[in-house]
Computed example of a mutant assay.
Amino acid sequence: MIFRLDDKDIAFPPPELAEEDGLLAVGGDLSPARLLKAYSSGVFPWYSEETPVLWYSPHERFVLYPEKLRISKSMRQVLRSGKYRVTLDQAFEDVIEACSTVAREGQDGTWITQEMKEAYTRLHTLGFAHSVEVWENEELAGGLYGVSMGRVFCGESMFSRKSNASKTALAWLCQNSNYALIDCQVYTEHLGSMGAEMISRETYMTYLV
């Protein structure tokens, strides 16, 4: 069933009560306290300008174990070439803006609303949201951002302006961080090709404690 959240109480209903598509609740806000409560409960917001805030907790989670990252031979050559320079938390607002505007094949528009940009920027200021930037010379070529929950990096979005730039960001995150799990949330062919896999919600939740 779908629950309506209280405007003042930031608690979430049990995630296992989510609908088949993962939709658990509607309403509430994107305050730092509510967002952090959501992520620690295995819940994340996903909605558009035309809808109220929708909260999801999929029964199966699409995740990437850093040690299982698959890097193709051609991608290894890119990483060794020195073509790109990678930084952490140097241009968070630029990354989230690019994630909301850079066109993606097969997608029409974006789910990253202005409200979301402001909310995750607040989380970044508080030290919970992070960005990985990929630079070609001084140009932002790609990157990703997400929320850090202890051993789990909850990936929100990634973008590329140059070939393999988002893959470079993901590879850097896997190889240069201490996360046990990267939460990709829902299936994409792109991430599946890099080794991401489905796990149960129950297994996912063990990483959040």
Rank of each mutant, 00 (worst) to 15 (best):
D7K: 15
G155K: 11
Y179P: 04
G195P: 04
H130T: 13
P32E: 07
W172E: 04
R122D: 09
E16D: 11
C174P: 02
K83R: 15
L36G: 06
G106Q: 13
D9M: 02
S200P: 02
R80T: 00
A129L: 06
G143N: 09
R80S: 05
S74R: 13
E202C: 03
H190S: 00
D94K: 14
S31L: 04
A18W: 08
I182H: 08
Q185I: 03
T168C: 10
W172K: 01
A141Y: 07
G106I: 04
Q185L: 04
C99K: 10
T203W: 11
R34S: 01
A38Y: 14
Q107T: 10
K68E: 11
S40L: 10
E189F: 05
R151L: 13
D183E: 01
L23V: 03
S74P: 06
S48A: 12
E93R: 10
V186H: 06
S166E: 08
V186Q: 14
H190V: 02
E19R: 15
S163K: 14
G28K: 10
P58L: 00
M116Y: 04
A98V: 01
S177L: 03
T206I: 09
M149W: 05
V147A: 12
A98T: 05
A103N: 09
S57N: 10
T87L: 06
G127D: 06
W55P: 05
Q114P: 09
S31P: 07
V53S: 09
S31M: 07
H59S: 08
Y187H: 13
L5N: 06
C174T: 05
Y120G: 08
T101K: 14
R85Y: 00
R85W: 00
E138Q: 14
R80I: 00
V132M: 08
T188C: 07
S57R: 06
S148Y: 07
G155V: 03
I96Y: 09
M149P: 01
E139R: 15
F128S: 14
G82F: 00
K83E: 08
R70D: 03
I112E: 06
M158G: 05
S31Q: 09
V86F: 02
D183P: 02
C154V: 02
C99N: 10
T206S: 15
V102N: 07
G146L: 07
E202T: 15
S160Y: 15
D21A: 04
V102P: 01
R80C: 01
C174V: 01
A129Y: 10
G109R: 13
M205Q: 14
E138V: 03
D89S: 08
V53E: 12
R161P: 03
S177V: 02
G192C: 03
R161Y: 07
M194I: 10
P32R: 11
S72T: 12
K83P: 01
A171W: 04
G195R: 11
E19P: 02
E156H: 12
V43I: 14
A33S: 15
L88A: 12
E138P: 03
S200Q: 09
I112A: 08
P13C: 06
V78K: 05
G106T: 06
R85N: 07
L181D: 05
G42A: 02
Y204G: 01
S41I: 02
Y47I: 09
S166F: 01
R201P: 00
F153V: 01
S193D: 11
V134I: 12
E60V: 07
N164Q: 13
P15K: 12
Q77V: 08
A33F: 13
I96D: 08
S74H: 12
K37V: 10
